[in-house]
Design a protein around this nucleic acid. Structure first.
Lengths: 244, 244
DNA sequence: TTGACAATTATGTACATACATATCGTAATT
DNA sequence: AATTACGATATGTATGTACATAATTGTCAA
């Protein structure tokens, strides 16, 4: 073997047998078939590399990606183990209200109830980890499906982070959609809960005061800079469904 | 320098300046500062590697991870561009009640309210896509955090699919946890909603009739065979949170 | 017994290199 | 003109190597 030349892949064309995908799949199979039980320590990267006949880095990538989706847990000196609670992750895609409504075959419409620029109130500053005086755009919108109230949206936008939105009139595009199109984010927090409709909520959504509401809150950041916080209220008959 | 030895990093110790994390952050910064607009094509890996003074593989990893979270879109011959519609998918983890409660520092306890084996009622057969006479295990459990009702669980289990559970007494392990450990599934549907507490719900959870409840329903299948359907009710102060 | 510290070890990351693969544009062919 | 073939190109992945870093374990001393 010459000094610098890395050995050609097995001389024969037996490539692709050692792809990190293959390894991921094989590890998943072993978990499924209970070869490796939850909580169990699995062989180290070196050993697996030897077993699969590939480089350690390849095993590393496979395991790293499995760790990312929560299948295994890794710690430096301690090794890799199968996650105790195969914490399955549901994928909820961030919906654009319009698309969601139209998918039901209904006519979509929205209206901006109020629009004001003000200093962030204390509660919002705390929630967004902001300090000092921060100008925010506060919007309240109502979304309709076939002229029936569908969602009430109460949104705060950090103008320092999304300056372009200050000039927006939202004649055609809802704030929701505008932000999805124009404000990429890197981090997000969502919270789901139930609450009782206040008199105002009830009035807006056309239901009775005290009726249960489904609450979807979402906060987004780009690089530690908070972009927006939104609280969406849905009528009691709303169901958020996800299958996979 | 010997033949095989890769050149030491810049001779000086100026390492870690070119980490893939640094590159990720810098790219996010450029997006935030509108240096690169949504939809725009950014320089190729080679160019960026040259700019950042690192190997192409390092840029590749940074960009790959950004693509994974939907910030950029990549196509082979076409290059990398800032995502136009950062259609993000939220990953909502499926919690094991006990772990969830204990994570709050509270004492976990559960009690099985009822346990009966019967033929699947029509509604359940429809929901699970079952036909004919199907024996099911119907369980009703109450979960506590520090002796305060936390979740009411109403579960139906397809005994044909999970025969081993028929003998289970659930003395120590809750049905939830037993199933997570022993009944792997391939498909799942979740539905989130809000509802008003019935008199019975209210009694069990220690709240008032009509109070809003957060409802989490989950159905799982293994290869088209339905395993279980569960409906979990939470007190009004419950929030399901997920950050990423 | 306990606490500090060093040795050990498994994972984490960076790099140069080579080759794989998808896809776009263009040229040759029908 | 439509179709096909092909080359160019950007990303995708595998490898050997080297060093970084976190965490455990063993050792020794207070």
């Amino acid at each position: 073997m010459t000094a610098a030349a890395p050995k050609s892949p097995e001389a024969s064309g037996a490539r692709a047998l050692t792809s990190f995908r293959t390894i991921k799949t094989e590890i998943l199979r072993r978990i499924r078939d209970r070869v490796w039980q939850p909580g169990e320590l699995i062989p180290g990267e070196e050993d697996l590399a030897r077993e699969f006949g590939c480089a350690r880095v390849t095993v590393n990538r496979a395991l790293r990606e499995l760790a990312q989706i929560g299948i295994v847990e890794r710690k430096r000196r301690a090794g890799t183990r199968i996650a105790e609670h195969p914490l399955r992750e549901a994928r909820l895609e961030i919906p654009v209200v319009r698309v969601e409504v139209e998918a039901l075959g209904a006519q979509y419409r929205f209206s901006v109830l109020s629009r004001e620029i003000l200093a962030a109130p204390e509660a919002m500053r705390a929630r967004l980890d902001l300090s000092g005086k921060v100008r925010m755009l506060h919007l309240r919108c109502l979304h309709f499906a076939d002229n029936r109230p569908w969602q009430f949206e109460d949104r705060w936008i950090n103008l320092a982070a999304v300056p372009d939105i200050e000039g927006e009139r939202f004649d055609t595009m809802s704030p929701n959609e505008w932000l999805v199109k124009n404000a990429p984010f890197s981090e997000m927090e969502i919270a789901l809960s139930a609450t009782a409709a206040t008199a105002e909520d009830a009035d807006l959504l056309g239901i009775a005061k005290g009726d249960p509401l489904f609450v979807f809150e979402r906060t987004t950041w780009l690089l530690d800079q908070p972009l927006t916080h939104v609280r969406m209220l849905h009528r009691p008959d709303y169901r958020m469904v996800s299958r996979f």
